[in-house]
Design a protein around this nucleic acid. Structure first.
Length: 302
DNA sequence: AATTCTGCCAACCGCTTGTCA
DNA sequence: TTGACAAGCGGTTGGCAGAAT
């Protein structure tokens, strides 16, 4: 037996919205808000639309300050980085791009950005292959061109990576040899984790920092910083380890390099009383295992 | 000029998650 | 603790417009 429909499909209009419908919905919401009940909204306004449809229309099109099209290079870069880190969680990606909707980003990714990137990656691989063929002769004359330093959106190995375990991934079916679950690992060392929603409710202005496993009872500025342990921002190993990333001043404050908000890593260490060093060692082992994995992939690819 | 193909994107569908009684 | 309901979310679809043949 399927789920009960959210509305009477027979009496509800579907398809593109007319200007009249848009005007009705927009002016009502601007004057009265949604009233916290989308299902009841269309009836109040006299629209023959499903509540879900109204919500979508408002969020994706009518809401103020919505941008359509014309994605900048910077936005491309952010989308790519986040996609690499967290996958197709469009709402989270959209939250990092003011004025963009999850639907817009999803469409943009599926129709253009994906092709653009894969095309770019293929092109670079071809160039590398050509360059390596020419390599000996060029080296012989001391004229190897180092100018092709464009940083790809993601590393060459990205497509070959094993499925990344995620903080959010509830899939418990993975073989234990596939990866080391960071949550289990941290728990082993005595850490407890704050639910993401709890963290969001407690967030005190650090809007970008939604994705961290937090030690229960800690503030948002006392986050765990394991994913950056011996890893660069774009290093896929941090995904393999299952940690999300920190950036900007979060990273600095956590790493203690600038300490701009007056916090250091002390709370983390004291909250993982068993053996912080052992935990880092464990993660180090994970990255070494992954390095080996990459080398095997590389040698197979040759 | 007519037809077919392709890319784009708004909107829908249905599953998951959150909330509340 | 449980069940019902609403909201949130991501995958998919369908129609339109422009390009290609």
């Amino acid at each position: 037996m399927g789920r009960a429909p959210c509305c009477d499909k027979a009496s509800v209009k579907k398809g593109p919205w007319s200007t009249e419908e848009d005007t009705k919905l927009k002016s009502y919401i601007e004057q009265h808000g949604t009233g916290g009940n989308w299902i009841a909204l269309p009836q109040k306004i006299g629209l023959k639309r499903c509540g879900k449809s109204c919500r979508l229309r408002w969020l994706n099109y009518l809401r103020p300050n919505i941008k359509h099209g014309g994605f900048s290079e910077e936005e491309d870069r952010i989308i790519c980085s986040l996609y690499l880190s967290i996958g197709s969680r469009w709402s989270i990606i959209a939250a990092q791009l003011p004025g963009r909707t999850d639907n817009d980003i999803k469409n943009y990714w599926n129709t253009r950005l994906k092709k653009k990137l894969f095309g770019k990656q293929r092109k670079e691989q071809q160039q590398q292959q050509q360059a390596s063929r020419r390599g000996n002769a060029l080296r012989h004359h001391g004229t190897v061109n180092k100018s092709n330093s464009t940083i790809p959106y993601w590393p060459q190995q990205q497509q070959q990576l094993p499925v990344a375990p995620s903080y959010y991934n509830n899939n418990n079916n993975m073989a234990s040899s596939d990866h080391i679950n960071p949550i289990e690992k941290l728990s082993k060392f005595g850490a407890q984790f704050m639910d993401e929603s709890v963290y969001n409710n407690n967030a005190n202005g650090y809007g970008n920092a939604y994705y961290f496993p937090l030690l229960q009872g800690q503030s948002s500025t006392q986050m765990v910083d394991l994913e950056n342990y011996d890893m660069g921002f774009d290093d896929p190993r941090r995904v393999l380890c299952g940690f999300e990333f920190v950036y900007g001043d979060h990273h600095n404050q956590i790493m203690g390099t600038s300490n701009s908000h007056g916090y250091e890593m002390g709370p983390l260490i004291s909250s993982c009383p068993s053996n912080y060093e052992a935990m880092l060692q464990d993660l180090s082992t994970t990255t070494q295992e992954y390095d080996t994995h990459l080398k095997i992939l590389d040698s197979n690819a040759v």
